[in-house]
Design a protein around this nucleic acid. Sequence first.
DNA 1: CAAAATACAATCAGTCATGTATGTTTTTAT
DNA 2: ATAAAAACATACATGACTGATTGTATTTTG
Lengths: 225, 225
Amino acid sequence: MALSRTRTTASTKPAATRSNGGTLQAAKAAQTRSRLLEATVRCIVKHGYANTTTPRVAKEAGLSRGAMMHHFENGAALIKATIIELHEKRLRAFRRAAERPEEHDVDTLVETYWAQVQKPAFIAFHELAVAARTDKELADILLPLQEEFRDRFNAQAHALFPEWGDSPTQFDLAMSLSQTIMEGMAIAVQTGAMDREKVPMMLAHLENQIRAIMPATARATAGKS
Amino acid sequence: MALSRTRTTASTKPAATRSNGGTLQAAKAAQTRSRLLEATVRCIVKHGYANTTTPRVAKEAGLSRGAMMHHFENGAALIKATIIELHEKRLRAFRRAAERPEEHDVDTLVETYWAQVQKPAFIAFHELAVAARTDKELADILLPLQEEFRDRFNAQAHALFPEWGDSPTQFDLAMSLSQTIMEGMAIAVQTGAMDREKVPMMLAHLENQIRAIMPATARATAGKS
DNA sequence: CAAAATACAATCAGTCATGTATGTTTTTAT
DNA sequence: ATAAAAACATACATGACTGATTGTATTTTG
């Protein structure tokens, strides 16, 4: 996906949802938009960001390219909307996984996040992050959203795990460690840099580490072994 | 880099170095080849694999595209040679770092590998690994070499750290943990997924972990704190 | 019901990468 | 020294993607 060849200031297309409130047509448009965003994610996962072209996304969504350009005037606009949608999806998944305090035992949480980082949302996300390293235009779109995502993720984490409330430093370490290990492992496995067989050993070690870092108050309720 | 549009069996071009022994011309060719491989790595690091085109590499190497096609008939051939060169470079770096047994203290080793994963060789490597996930032709080139690299890396690791010899399971865990955390963190920092400020904390934790995993015999000589 | 807006389709010109074919100069070998 | 071979350069044909333009059907609104 080569973003915007023309050098027009990438307007956020404020004219898109202009004045139609909740009409029949608006619903149809919203559905088509959704289909396009899902098609974009599928394309990124299947073909990689570099080979996610506008004709390909249109075809994957079962739409003509012209129709697609009507909803997203630019490749850039499509990608931006996709990133926002991906962030929402990952945050919802994280919230769903952690909002039941009765399942705050370390093993379940680790396994749940491990399952998450193997889903399309995370794969597409990493694909975009890697591409943004060398694609300044994509970086201009992604990095601010990335920062916002990190903040919201952290805020949600603190809200969802009050049992760590009195040890912010430990919590920070546990979170960073979990993210680094599981996300790094997911990428390593996906790209063939690591053998799948080592995953259980690593996850078990991570779980033990988290328990060791956990404050005693929380360990009483959430630690298993 | 879109590898080979034509579907010819990607021959390894055995006719390249045909019968000229050690003449002046052979030296010149070898130097040009080197320049091309280095230019390829620079292009991958600067522009990403997707935007590493044959004209771009030629220009970066200060060569015409025709001359380049003389040394590597294909984009695929160029990439394959680059991957092999990258692997050699990473293995040499690893060996150099670990071949002085007097510097086998955990802190030095961790810092050295952390420095390694921030160098061009690792960045290019990851770029290629990500691209190969969705580029079957690249995967056919990369994956076998990747497996060979892993084997040689592990063999070298066992040879260079005899002090862990009697605890293969622990050694395996320590190696996997180190690679996952440092490589994962390098990628996360590069792509903006992680804040640079968290790196020291993570490295310190990793060092403690390795010391905890280390067999007592080795800990006597290599453990610091 | 007529006019305006929206959803969607088809086509065009510009750009760029790939592979190949064809020249030109330098090196090697007889 | 001269012919072959290798190193290097130039030019061309093909294909793909991007953005823009133009056209049609459906829906909303006054």
